[in-house]
């Protein structure tokens, strides 16, 4: 795995920054990632959670696929605290608090209309461009309030893949190169990170595009002709193209909103495999109402019902020993 550094710059960059400047949370117990890292080092903490080993996950061998086991390199990246979301006068997400961690996949499950999509969209402030949406509560990324970040910078770091594949009406290549070409907008941020001010060009751009397509598992299928129209791909390929498009920007958190709901079983399996493989380099949040899928890919599961977060815990616990009656009903009902 010889990756272009551009594809995963945040991982290398953020750790030293946190080590240097500890973001001090306000008086309330809102631990930043730094705090989480610190607490992870304490003996009381479950041994699996520590920060030392994941500095360069790129070189790590992919762990065996065993979703419910904890990995050696898990760190909290985002934290939601008492998040409330409304459309107009109607609260559709009530008081949700959750951690989002790199190194594992978090699945949001729950019946339709329970507010999963809304919650996911609030994580990169897409709710701001939705008519009538409003939010209360704190969401932090590496200890920083997301409201304090420039919205577009934030969305580069926290990228979203939608329920319906939405490739742009361009060639496959242009779709993936899209965000790379738009790097200029993020020039200042990149300069701070010691990277060149502009996005990659020429051969370098091509290499980055190919790399992103490889990571999304699409290169073998479309690599022979990257100039083909993206809208001519199959549904599963389109969705993987959308994932590649998001990955090309080098996100730190990847949000997936029911990415397989429009796809056939084979495409679904491919994408699930891809998601599990990604969790080392990005924090992954996936919304699904397919419980089988949650079992297959998730390390932690959050069950939402009518806007409330009913239960959160390791996947195994949620599916085998749920604590809440409502979770038990939902899980068993769905399993038959």
């Amino acid at each position: 795995m010889n990756q272009d550094p551009r594809l995963a710059p945040p991982v290398r960059r953020i750790i030293p920054r946190q080590a240097g400047t500890v973001v001090e949370p306000r008086s309330e117990p809102a631990p930043s990632a730094a705090a989480a890292v610190a607490s992870a080092a304490q003996p009381a903490v479950e041994p699996g959670v520590q920060s030392g080993a994941w500095q360069d996950p790129v070189d790590m061998p992919a762990p065996p696929r065993a979703p419910t086991t904890t990995h050696s390199n898990v760190v909290e990246r985002m934290r939601l605290e008492s998040v409330w979301l409304a459309y107009g006068d109607r609260w559709v997400v009530r008081d949700v608090s959750l951690p989002v961690r790199q190194g594992e996949v978090l699945a949001l499950i729950g019946a339709s209309g329970s507010g999963k999509t809304t919650l996911l969209r609030s994580l990169n402030r897409l709710t701001e461009i939705t008519a009538g949406a409003a939010r209360a509560g704190h969401i932090t990324l590496d200890g920083e309030e997301i409201d304090g970040l420039e919205a577009n910078d934030l969305r580069r770091r926290i990228s979203m893949v939608f329920q319906q594949p939405n490739p742009f009406p361009m060639s496959v290549f242009e779709n993936v190169a899209y965000s790379l070409r738009e790097e200029r907008a993020a020039r200042r941020r990149r300069r701070r990170a010691g990277l060149p001010g502009r996005g990659p060009r020429g051969d370098q751009l091509r290499a980055s595009v190919v790399e992103a397509l490889r990571r999304a598992g699409l290169y073998d299928e479309v690599g022979d002709d990257l100039d083909r129209p993206a809208l001519g791909l199959s549904g599963g390929q389109q969705q993987r193209l959308c994932i590649a498009r998001s990955l090309a920007a080098g996100p730190e958190v990847l949000l997936l909103d029911e990415p397989c709901s429009a796809l056939d079983p084979i495409s679904t399996a491919t994408i699930e495999e891809l998601i599990v493989g990604l969790r080392e380099s990005v924090a992954v949040v996936i919304v699904t109402h397919n419980l089988q899928q949650a079992v297959r890919v998730a390390d932690h599961v959050a069950f939402m019902h009518l806007g409330e977060l009913v239960e959160y815990g390791p996947s195994q616990q949620i599916f085998e020993h749920p604590r809440q009656q409502r979770t038990r009903d939902y899980v068993s009902g769905a399993f038959g």
């Binding site: 461009i129 009406p169 920007a249």
Partner: peptide, 27 residues
């Protein structure tokens, strides 16, 4: 222009003007 396109672009951290220019105008 389908909203999914412009929203997809904004979700990639491309600002509204660039989204209009690169996606909406293109379409």
């Amino acid at each position: 222009v389908p909203r999914t396109w412009t929203e997809g672009s904004v979700a990639l951290g491309v600002n509204r003007w660039r989204t209009i220019r690169r996606v909406s105008l293109r379409a």
